[in-house]
Amino acid sequence: MTDSLTEQILRVTDKLAAARELPAAAKAFGADSHGFHLGPPVPEAEVAAFEERHGVTLPAEYRAFVTRVGHGGPGPQGGAGPFYGLLPLDRWAEALELEPTDTVLATPFPVDPDFAYLDWWSEVGLGVDDEPFPGAIALGHEGCGHLSVLVVTGAARGRVSSTYWDGAGPQLSPAPDFLSWYENWLDTVLAG
């Protein structure tokens, strides 16, 4: 792990601990169920087995988070995180519309970060029998059927996206990676 990644992990860990101590933090959406707690980190061997089984390498920032900070948590929708909280890694397939297959994560996520879609479905060539959100793992429920996902395969690899169904399709977060997305959420919580 790089020094900058280690520094960011430590910063995120400190901010998460600070969020637990803020009285106003309990008012953050979802905090009543997760209390700014996460489940225990995932052992390296389990992450490696997940990657091998699905033919992917998890983005370094997410991998570092789940192996060093934690994943999932006490709430019915997971642990400390945006919206309803972060799902545990074993609930990765919740963003899929079709049954998961062994190759769905290795299939590129159908969004080009440099393209503005007007009619995403037709512009990426999705048919009615196609999985609209391959190449991504579910991070958490946003409400109204939308999820936050982490792109693990494709041009947007490493980015967090919301799975909107409108013509523009999934919307990528402006954050460059999972840890930046998560830290931005913590900064918002800590700012009140």
Rank of each mutant, 00 (worst) to 15 (best):
T57L: 13
E131F: 03
E44Y: 08
Q8P: 07
R53G: 05
A191M: 02
A48W: 01
A26R: 15
R20G: 15
L150W: 01
D130I: 00
P132C: 03
E131V: 02
Y62V: 00
Q8W: 05
E52R: 06
P132F: 01
L172N: 11
E94M: 12
P76H: 08
N184V: 07
A156D: 07
Q171L: 12
G75T: 12
K27V: 11
A168W: 10
Y182C: 10
H71I: 06
V151G: 01
F83V: 09
P132G: 03
G70T: 01
E97T: 13
A64S: 14
T6W: 05
L190E: 02
C144P: 04
H146W: 10
H37K: 14
F50G: 13
A156K: 05
A136W: 03
P59I: 01
A155C: 00
W181Y: 15
T2S: 15
H146A: 14
L58K: 10
Q171I: 11
E61P: 09
S180F: 06
A19H: 05
G135D: 01
V160M: 03
G55K: 02
S148A: 15
T2G: 08
S122R: 14
G70Y: 00
G35R: 05
H141Q: 13
A45Q: 03
P23Y: 10
E7P: 09
A25C: 09
F109N: 04
